[in-house]
Design a protein around this nucleic acid. Sequence first.
DNA 1: CGCAGTATTGAAATTTCTCAAGCCGAGTGG
DNA 2: CCACTCGGCTTGAGAAATTTCAATACTGCG
Lengths: 249, 249
Amino acid sequence: MELAFELLLAKAAQHATLLAADRAALLDLMPRSRPVAAGEDIVRQGDRPDTAVIVLSGMLGRYQTLETGDRQYISFHITGDMPDIQSLFLSTMDHSVCAINGAEIAAVPHKQLIPLIVSRPAVGFAFWRVTLVDAAIFRQAVTNVGARSHLARLAHFFCEQYTRADDAGLAVEKSCDLPLSQGQIGQALGMAAISVNRAVQALRKDDLATLRAGKLEIRDWRGLARVAEFDPTYLHLTKEAELSKMAFK
Amino acid sequence: MELAFELLLAKAAQHATLLAADRAALLDLMPRSRPVAAGEDIVRQGDRPDTAVIVLSGMLGRYQTLETGDRQYISFHITGDMPDIQSLFLSTMDHSVCAINGAEIAAVPHKQLIPLIVSRPAVGFAFWRVTLVDAAIFRQAVTNVGARSHLARLAHFFCEQYTRADDAGLAVEKSCDLPLSQGQIGQALGMAAISVNRAVQALRKDDLATLRAGKLEIRDWRGLARVAEFDPTYLHLTKEAELSKMAFK
DNA sequence: CGCAGTATTGAAATTTCTCAAGCCGAGTGG
DNA sequence: CCACTCGGCTTGAGAAATTTCAATACTGCG
């Protein structure tokens, strides 16, 4: 809980300058945490939630469903992310959010957030910015699914997930959790599961990255980033994070 | 100019309740308008803009570029849209915005927007909401490109563009401007130009919709929406917004 | 009136998906 | 503790969808 909040604060603070009082007010929200089972939906398309979720641990997935039952994952979220702040101002959910693996979340009531935002513009800006970074991630997803080859697409996906995990301090020794089946990755990247499999193998063969047992390991960052044409600008991370990324190369 | 502002106000007012004073403050911004030639870039990936653009007339396109030169259009914007408010809080552009056809835009300096937002939370909420609707449009684009068949994809694109044009009062007699070449539509939908052509013809043959000379005509809305699995919820237009305004109070 | 960009057409080539079957590895119950 | 089972990964075709290529019509604009 503490960790997730610290991450959220760090993320939020990147643009707006948060005063100590702002931070204190945020920490004061202190929502209850609750566990979510793998596969369980947290909010569903059509719902009108009155809380906003913070991820404390595990991975959440945002998806839309077609009439055929096909599922399109839009984005994935880890510790410190707030995947559904948009519900503050868009009352009806146009997508669902589920737990990918066992996760722990906290839910902050809108009723507490609105007054906080009104009384402390810096906090509002911070949350606003979080939603804007999400939007930037969606834009990249459009480009990834729409314009890149299968191999580049998977490589880009790996780069993004790793970079975000690393930014959250969740990467250890060039590897991070990625508890997705190849089928789910396919549903995120607009590829058949078999095509994901072939791409995973290609990346493994060239020793760029490996995915095994829900763990993503980066073997050759520069090579992977080159295949992916990965430019982390869109994640709008802290300067330090980008610098450390450089050093990693 | 007046029209665009009215549309923007209407859009913005859908969630937050804008007082007369809020509206007046917005109108006071009164930015200068300027024409943009077809194809001309308004902001480019990597720029750090200090203004936010309002579309007065014509169509703008948001896109990203790959190293190969391939272009992926992410979204299109018409009168009353503000395609780059996100630059208020994400300083470096992760995409470009260009004019599709000859267009007219106004640019509001960030310096004027920030104080306005700080002093009038309702105005801030309104702009925030506009960025959230954009994000919802990006989410649909991911699903469209990632999960739908070519035919459904084009049909969905038509439904969205028409619905948005109609909402802006720009649709006449079941038709609206859509000044895109089939090639550009392909760059938006992740399809080769030829595939777009075949899909366009299929929709025409079934008398669902026609696209000719930059005009989209809806011939059979229900049929088209059925093919597209189009559900306008994600656009968060007036009807839904009215309800959410209630709940918000 | 003619140019240039766009739309359309048909066919070949390639990519991508579907299908089917075997394999592996983690978790379960005897 | 081991056999079993289930889901996920892997493999190799063949089938289908999609793109590339090339060549012809169309249309708006100068």
